[in-house]
Amino acid sequence: MWALVAAFALGALVSGGLVFAVTGPSSTERMADQIRAEAALRDKTQVKDLTTLARTTRDRLAPVLEGLSLAMPGGDAAAGPAAVTSADVGKWREAVTAAVASFADPPSGETATNVARSTLASAVRQLATTVDAYAAARDLGGPSAATALERAARQRADALFTWSVGATALDAVNVDVGYGHQHVFLQTSPGDGALTPDDEPEGHHS
């Protein structure tokens, strides 16, 4: 009797082991799961770092955008180029140069995070070009100056729009990795045509 029970138990153990061996994950599948988990963790860290960088950049660029808005066609005031000094332009150049440098040598990450980072970096480069174009326009006179300023104003609008696309992408990846909404948008006016943040509160996960 006991021999029969022992034989049955041994058979069950062997059978169960065989079933697990057949239906359990293979070494390749386990390795793939580990790689996916490591990639997800790495992406979450990169999203956090990118969001911090975007906030720092936004604060760094705020005085530049405010100055350009006051001095350029279509801005908040018709002060004209004379309202801006060479020292002001020098400070703007320092700010945008530092911002461009902060996006240099980006890490390789998940596609959505790379897209958000690249779009924000492109916006910063466009704004640096705007400052250069504005500085060049100040050295011109007559119709040429007006034309150059108009071109610089369009470049500024393009930079603001590009940043808004990147900020929207950054918001989406933050939600995807579990940080919730992060609205890192530049200050814009309705006429700029830029995308605006949604109505979800900061940190909300829906």
Rank of each mutant, 00 (worst) to 15 (best):
M31K: 14
V96F: 04
G166I: 05
R30D: 09
R55L: 09
P106L: 07
A153Q: 05
A116K: 05
T188E: 03
G80Q: 02
A77T: 00
D198F: 11
Q126L: 13
T188G: 00
A6L: 12
R55N: 05
V14P: 03
S26Q: 01
H205C: 08
A112I: 07
A40I: 13
L170Y: 11
L195V: 06
T196C: 07
A146I: 13
A133D: 15
G109N: 09
L170R: 00
A128L: 06
D192A: 07
A101N: 03
A3F: 15
L70H: 03
T45H: 13
G178P: 10
G75Y: 04
R36T: 05
T147R: 11
A87F: 01
L41C: 14
L68V: 05
E29L: 04
F8K: 07
V19H: 03
S108L: 12
D139A: 15
W163Q: 02
A7Y: 13
G193A: 10
A54W: 00
M72L: 00
S144F: 15
S122M: 12
K44E: 12
S189P: 13
V184Q: 10
D199G: 14
D43W: 10
G17I: 06
T57G: 00
P106E: 02
G16D: 03
T23S: 09
A95W: 00
S86N: 09
A6R: 13
D33L: 11
L68F: 03
E38I: 14
V177H: 10
T52C: 08
A3G: 13
I35R: 12
A40W: 14
